[in-house]
């Protein structure tokens, strides 16, 4: 089953984005812990797009969610037509240094990479395409 949501890139639309994702997760057999990991990762990516892709304007973000590989894996794709931006390009923040010295940014992408099994980025036909994959049945 594949579901699609087209939504304006406002941070305040996060509530609607998360309801869309959670409604889908309810229809498949997805453990609660994984549901939270997915919701947090979706939040990080959507907020990132909403904050940067079309800034200072807004635009459409297309979100696709689908069970793939015999329903063993969940795939969530974010597509926007904003400026090319690969969030995976930035170096991960150094989390080994003293907490007082730590930069306050960059944690969202790091959290997403750790919580998901795969995070991939592509820029194709003027569009940013970011894909999250999470194995839901081992």
């Amino acid at each position: 089953m594949k579901k699609e949501l087209k939504i304006e890139s406002y941070v305040d639309n996060l509530t609607m984005v998360l309801s869309f994702i959670r409604d889908y997760l309810k229809t498949i057999d997805c453990p609660t812990k994984i549901q939270t990991q997915i919701a947090i990762s979706v939040e990080e990516i959507f907020v990132n797009i909403a904050s940067y892709a079309y800034y200072p304007n807004s635009g459409i973000v297309k979100i696709l969610i689908e069970s793939i590989r015999n329903n063993s894996t969940l795939e969530i794709t974010f597509i926007d037509s904003g400026r090319p931006f690969n969030p995976l390009e930035n170096k991960d923040p150094d989390i080994s240094i003293e907490a007082e010295e730590r930069p306050i940014g960059g944690l969202g992408i790091l959290m997403t990479k750790k919580a998901m099994d795969e995070v991939a980025y592509d820029f194709k036909e003027g569009k940013n395409i970011l894909v999250l994959r999470k194995i839901i049945i081992k």
Binding site: T36, A39, I40, E43, E44, V47, A99, E100, R102, I104, G105, L107, G108, M111
Partner: peptide
Amino acid sequence: CDYVSSAGIRVLLSTYKILK
């Protein structure tokens, strides 16, 4: 509360620094 995203972590980290 068992859902904390990076926005929450940022508040915790800055609060930690202020108290420290």
